[in-house]
Design a binder for these strands. Sequence first.
DNA 1: ACTTTAGTTAGCAATATGACTAACAATTCG
DNA 2: CGAATTGTTAGTCATATTGCTAACTAAAGT
Lengths: 114, 114
Amino acid sequence: MTNNSELDALFQSLADPTRRAILARLAHGSASVTDLFAPFDMALPSFLQHLRKLEDGGLIETTKQGRVRTCTLRVGALAPARGWMEEQRLLWEGRHDRLEDYLATLLQGPDTDG
Amino acid sequence: MTNNSELDALFQSLADPTRRAILARLAHGSASVTDLFAPFDMALPSFLQHLRKLEDGGLIETTKQGRVRTCTLRVGALAPARGWMEEQRLLWEGRHDRLEDYLATLLQGPDTDG
DNA sequence: ACTTTAGTTAGCAATATGACTAACAATTCG
DNA sequence: CGAATTGTTAGTCATATTGCTAACTAAAGT
């Protein structure tokens, strides 16, 4: 079976606007927790949970120096998710002709009114 | 912030192995609920919840004819997720200039490509 | 009509998620 | 030292997720 729990964690990490925003911001460069946190309207511990989730999912790395923890993107982390999506895209688009064929058969059914 | 709840739902839909497997299977062609359900080791109502989630998230379409409900992929549904990931990849790799170019090709849709 | 097939609905339970406050380090600055 | 800064941990709460069973509807088959 394709029981790829890495993809579970990856997509789960991306399924939250706070975490996507963190990633987008980190794309412009590493940043401390406080800097990252600044634009968000939530309590710091809540924010830290998101950071931890990103770290657990391998999307970011963090290192602490003194009191400051610096967060950095792991550049290759999205690759498996992108790979899955690309795989699907190729399959989906490969069957596009059949889809149109199927939709044509649907029109012949009795459910023509909504 | 970019509070894009469409991406929330999309990534959430993909964050489950059952749902990814359904999508992968549907990529090979439309199928009835019973056919789709066959390889899974769970109760049918549990499975139906996944199907409903995929439908609510716009990833599949279903139509019922007689007692049989047929499920079909919505081919363009993954595009926003793919777009976000590609956007991030370009940012992460520091190629901000190519972003606009890529986004332009997205707008043309996959079926305009030869 | 009765049965089988195909799917649906309702309701329950365990766990995960995402938020909060309060209290606690640990480091740095005056 | 004492105080501010930076982050962490613990504990709580509401809701969402994901699974189940049992009972049900609707269409076909015999």
